[in-house]
Design a protein around this nucleic acid. Structure first.
Length: 203
DNA sequence: TATGCGATATTCT
DNA sequence: GAATATCGCATAG
């Protein structure tokens, strides 16, 4: 008996705030979906970080390069890059075309395709499937082939409306950076066990 | 719980 | 050649 999964409505670009920090907050509770030939991977976004203009921690701090080009696309495009020689990171561009800003997706609560995520991650611990940006990309089979795709344009990797309302949203400093470490640009669903970082970073 | 470390590829200096 | 938006494992307390 094949599961039909739940209905998830695709978000339209018009629904995305035209401001990266607002988008980072907006995306908490929304859905990330990757439709693959053998099934769907989906989950609730529970943790994000914003990277904005003038931010030394942003990949666009020194302007447009071949790598960061997707961040300069109209809001809602994917920027996927390879980090620390091991992991892919998935970002959503957050501004009007020509402005290089984005939102890093840091953690997801798995909803659909869990068995496949377990295989992708070589772990059966539900909490660890997509808790952290590198794990998230691995669970969702996101790699550089998806760099630059439109997440609100009808493709296989897309943003959907929330299947359950977001809880209270917490704000904190970002994780894993050295520059601009004081800025409060990390957003998360408070109390969620699917959020990365230490316990204090989930409260 | 917290800290430390190695692995590893790509980008930019 | 240095830096890096990480992870998983090890060890200590």
């Amino acid at each position: 008996m094949k599961s039909r999964g739940l209905q998830i409505r695709r978000l339209k670009r018009d629904e995305l705030p035209i401001q990266t920090v607002k988008l980072a907050r907006f995306l908490i509770g929304k859905t990330l979906v990757h439709d693959l030939p053998r099934g769907r991977l989906a989950g609730r976004i529970v943790e994000t970080e914003a990277y904005v203009t003038g931010d030394a921690a942003s990949h666009t701090f020194r302007g447009l390069t071949a790598r960061n080009r997707p961040l300069f696309l109209e809001r809602g495009h994917a920027y996927v890059y390879f980090c620390y020689g091991n992991h892919f990171m998935l970002n959503v561009s957050g501004q009007r075309e020509g402005i290089g800003e984005g939102v890093l997706l840091r953690a997801i609560e798995p909803i659909e395709g869990i068995a496949r995520m377990e295989r992708n991650r070589v772990t059966v611990r539900l909490l660890d499937l997509a808790r952290g940006p590198g794990r998230l990309a691995e669970a969702f089979e996101v790699d550089r082939r998806l760099d630059g795709v439109d997440l609100v344009g009808g493709g296989v990797l897309w943003l959907g409306a929330g299947v359950r309302p977001a809880g209270r949203i917490g704000v904190s400093v970002r994780i894993g950076i050295n520059k601009e470490a004081h800025r409060l640009l990390r957003f998360y669903e408070r109390g969620s066990e699917f959020v990365s970082g230490s316990r204090s970073l989930r409260k």
